[in-house]
């Protein structure tokens, strides 16, 4: 058997994986109930099974129908953009808006094509001023502005 459509092959696997996971997790951990009084496991187990079956069809189809290859992943933006967001969230409390925004702007800028310290710093200063004005002053959201150790 040769994989003719790699996109469908991986998509099928993904659906089967998620479907089986939801179905089995629901069946093990929650009550099934009856059709009249459905337990918490009923709907997710049925849907999980359905997703796995649909995934199986997609998977089988990938051996039969010709399709384009999966385009290559750009790991640099994928990782840097995701990490930048996560850093922002987890640095907000210890480092405040000033520190968290710095992490987000500099790390995400590294994910682009060009990186110029001066440009990014100017962008950072504009964004921090804007966030402070709109969100802290304007909408009075309770964000710490400065790192914890200074306040």
């Amino acid at each position: 058997m040769k994989i003719k459509s790699p996109k469908d092959f991986w998509a099928g696997l993904m659906f089967i994986g998620f479907g089986l996971f939801f179905m089995i997790w629901a069946l093990i951990h929650y009550q099934m109930g009856t059709a009249v009084r459905m337990g918490p496991a009923y709907f997710p187990a049925v849907l999980g099974g359905l997703l796995a079956v649909l995934g199986a069809f997609v998977l089988l189809g990938s051996f039969a129908i010709e399709g384009p290859p999966v385009p290559p992943f750009s790991y640099r933006p994928l990782i840097l953009i995701s990490v930048a967001c996560v850093l922002y969230g987890y640095l907000m409390k210890p480092l405040g808006l000033v520190g968290a925004t710095a992490a987000l702007v500099y790390v995400s800028a590294l994910g682009g094509h060009e990186f110029n310290w001066k440009e990014v710093t100017i962008l950072y200063l504009i964004l921090i001023a804007f966030s402070w004005l709109v969100f802290v002053k304007g909408l009075t959201l309770p964000f710490p502005v400065w790192p914890e150790m200074f306040s």
Partner: peptide, 8 residues
Amino acid sequence: PSILVFMA
């Protein structure tokens, strides 16, 4: 980066 700041 600006869009990301607003989303975050």
